[in-house]
């Protein structure tokens, strides 16, 4: 399952989708919105995606991971829209026969998603009493 969604991510559903009766390990990465960035308070983040390209890119990443590790199941869900600190922005779950490959595959997938998937965040930071500053990094 690859999902780009404006709705809050149902973490358990992502885990269930990736799980398999033949697996001895399910590994989950949950990315959340930090409350501080560039030494300032984050008020909110806006995520957007070029969805058609993003889904194809994540599929390529999963294909490569499946080639490198014996994955039994996988799921990736990325949130878009407006997110506040503490909210879940991305969930990656994989299952495999043993734990080592599940850790490696999960890390590989989230690292690749962060550097390759066509998703952008814009940070809205608080400056002073009423000011905002926008940052793309």
């Amino acid at each position: 399952m690859i999902k780009i969604t404006e709705k809050p991510i149902d973490v358990q559903k992502v885990i269930d989708t990736a799980s398999s009766l033949n697996a001895g390990a399910v590994n989950v990465f949950i990315g959340t919105v930090r409350s501080k960035a560039h030494g300032k308070n984050v008020v909110w983040l806006e995520y957007e995606s070029y969805e058609s390209m993003t889904v194809a890119e994540i599929r390529k990443i999963i294909d490569e991971a499946s080639h490198r590790w014996p994955l039994l199941g996988w799921a990736v869900s990325h949130r878009i829209g407006t997110l506040k600190p503490g909210e879940v922005s991305v969930v990656v779950a994989v299952s495999s026969p043993h734990r080592k490959e599940s850790f490696e595959a999960c890390q590989y997938i989230i690292d690749e998603v962060k550097t390759k998937a066509q998703i952008w965040k814009k940070k809205y930071l608080k400056t002073g009493r009423n000011g905002f500053q926008q940052a793309h990094k």
Partner: peptide, 10 residues
């Protein structure tokens, strides 16, 4: 046609 600047998901 789309412009793709450095991505920043996650």
């Amino acid at each position: 046609i789309a412009l793709i600047p450095p991505v920043s998901g996650g």
